[in-house]
Design a protein around this nucleic acid. Sequence first.
DNA 1: CGCCGCCTTGAGCTGGCTCAATCTGCGTGG
DNA 2: CCACGCAGATTGAGCCAGCTCAAGGCGGCG
Lengths: 220, 220
Amino acid sequence: MLHAVVGRGQSLKAGEDIVREGDHTDVVHVILEGHGFRYKTLPDGKRQIIGYLVPGDFCDLYGFLLDKMDHGIAARTHCQVAELTEDHILMLTSRPSLARALWWSELVNASILREWLVNMGRRTPSARVAHILCELLVRLQVVGQASADSFRLELSQSELGDTVGLTTVSVNRALQRLRGANLIQSSGREIVIPDVAALKAFADFDPGYLHFRQDREDHS
Amino acid sequence: MLHAVVGRGQSLKAGEDIVREGDHTDVVHVILEGHGFRYKTLPDGKRQIIGYLVPGDFCDLYGFLLDKMDHGIAARTHCQVAELTEDHILMLTSRPSLARALWWSELVNASILREWLVNMGRRTPSARVAHILCELLVRLQVVGQASADSFRLELSQSELGDTVGLTTVSVNRALQRLRGANLIQSSGREIVIPDVAALKAFADFDPGYLHFRQDREDHS
DNA sequence: CGCCGCCTTGAGCTGGCTCAATCTGCGTGG
DNA sequence: CCACGCAGATTGAGCCAGCTCAAGGCGGCG
């Protein structure tokens, strides 16, 4: 359905910003292909990643309704993004079912943020990393980019650390513990999970917060 | 405007649950008076607070649209809450300006969650606590419950810890550091901030993420 | 007066952080 | 085809802050 609407699109290289903090854009970006993340940078240069974006996700409905973006969005792989103008958005939201789907997806985003907060605040380093891996497995499965027990991790250990509030060194050691317990196997960026249930149990992962539904509106 | 619509309401004592995790309610709760918080509990009993609620906030628009609540909501003071039925909600959302205001408030909630994530992930314990105090100051000012430089903190140190990912002991020591630096003065639950700008600078607090506007829709 | 929740303090442990070096895989230019 | 450079992964040493455990202290309330 988006295809009928999308006029302009753009292609971005890994590492480029899709939206910069402080921007007020008059267009809304949608990821068609590739992976990205939302982030904030602190005065001392530290970075916190505050969300992952997979194909189909809206980047900045947000900055469109609010005054300006309070965070940036970066591409972590090559990305193909669509740009929707105000007219497109008005057209989409004029259909109640679509407007509802957009609202719904924002609520799911907020739900993910709450779970991340729990993750950072109250879980051990290994469980934090394991939890993120479980989330990625499930989210990538939904968009057809993961098998039942493996996926390609498009994140450096430093980016993982910026996600879960650890240093690169600690992420590395957490991954080693997970490998040692045979909860994951990894060769390069490929993550294989020998026993998905075991990893989920270790991470205290309950996919409920992702709120998948059968009748989910399809963004494609 | 709500007053015209609110049929039933209820009165809750401090510590009671307003909504329990897993509930699917057919009504939406709105806080009229008092303070509450959202929280999740982990298998090992640890708790993470994932949001504060002040008068005017909607508790569970969320569980209304999604299948079920993935977190609980507790009253931290005596609370007066309104219960809106599906009819009420449909009536509210049928007015574009109101529907837009509701959406807007959900986006602001998500923005606050992102800032909390930054807070937990990348700031020192003292700065975390200071940041929460700054946020409370500003949010309570907006609802007329804080002066220019002081407010009543309706949270125990343990609840503060569950908010920012610290233990009670660490919160206590963080507060002592803030007092020692004369960034705050506190007698019991009353917080006085001698130099608001100094505290904000220390906490790296930029109220932008709260997205206040002049033309904000009033929930009263 | 005694209870209870919450705040405060102390001692000691440990795990996460910092700093820093090394290794590895991969793409580039010669 | 090989040397070089770079980004990211890995490892080690040592520090120290936040955690755990535990013991008071304090104030409000029945």
